[in-house]
């Protein structure tokens, strides 16, 4: 469970062009559920995702992570308040607890599909062979094992998407964060993406997606839709839970 309390994010604070991208967001994201952030362009979805994913810090407010790996928690503590953690810890949490799927997938060109999948795990100090085995297993799971050695720039859109998901899963994160994952996909691939998301949820992972694509927020298996408007949370309704 991720809990945001009165979170504000102000860009260019103190300058004339200061802009509150998020303005007092209080929100609970349920564990092992798929939550979709929906809203018009510029409403603050990406900003919200980056705060949840420990990529940036809020200007004010608190973010609590519950039920994470216990490594970071002092005995007796059951939630982690991440806004006050130093950068190093934040990166560590991000690497272990979160997997990211970006809008353009952001695969590193010039590297093979397998190398891309392995990238997030390389600085952890695990052995390369172990990481490669994990990466291959993920590629097999998403039926792109045959392309493991291919350079990513030669992959089709659907393959690139699945490689990107595999990369997000390489560190076995509890939370998957995806920003507009279907923006560049046709409807068949978008549906396929949501199927994969559903399987991830069934594994017990928490998924947070920012999207204004009806194929995403109206998909079966979405547990909650949160409407973001002008940096605030609008009416939130639950998706069609099966």
């Amino acid at each position: 469970m991720i809990r945001l309390v009165e979170v504000r994010k102000i860009f260019n604070a103190g300058r004339p062009n200061a802009h509150a991208a998020l303005d007092g967001v209080t929100l609970t994201i349920r564990r092992s559920a798929v939550t979709v952030l929906k809203g018009p362009s510029g409403s603050g979805k990406t900003t919200l995702l980056s705060l949840i994913g420990c990529m940036a810090r809020p200007t004010s407010g608190r973010i609590h992570l519950h039920g994470l790996d216990t490594d970071w928690l002092a005995p007796g503590e059951e939630s982690l308040e991440i806004t006050s953690l130093p950068e190093r810890f934040l990166t560590g949490i991000r690497r272990r607890a979160f997997g990211f799927v970006f809008q353009q997938f952001h695969l590193v060109r010039g590297l093979s599909a397998l190398d891309n999948v392995m990238l997030p795990a390389l600085p952890t100090g695990a052995s390369r062979a172990a990481i490669a085995a994990r990466g291959m297993a993920l590629l097999e799971r998403f039926r792109v094992a045959g392309r493991a050695g291919n350079l990513v720039e030669h992959l089709s859109g659907g393959e690139a998407q699945r490689v990107a998901i595999a990369r997000a899963l390489i560190n076995d994160p509890a939370v998957i964060i995806a920003d507009e994952p279907t923006a560049h996909l046709d409807s068949r691939l978008s549906a396929e993406f949501m199927e994969i998301i559903a399987t991830l949820r069934s594994e017990g992972r928490t998924v947070v997606i920012a999207s204004h694509d009806p194929l995403v927020y109206a998909a079966p298996g979405v547990d909650a839709v949160v409407v973001v408007r002008d940096g605030r949370i609008g009416e939130s309704g639950s998706g069609r839970t099966p």
Binding site: M55, E87, R88, T91, G92, R94, R95, F98, F100, F102, H106, L107, V108, R109, L119, P120, P123, R167, N171
Partner: peptide
């Protein structure tokens, strides 16, 4: 620009500044 983009991606997927 290419190198910068790569650094951005690596940061995004969880590499530290030190990495």
């Amino acid at each position: 620009a290419e190198e910068r983009r790569e650094i951005g991606i690596l940061k995004g997927i969880g590499w530290e500044t030190g990495d």
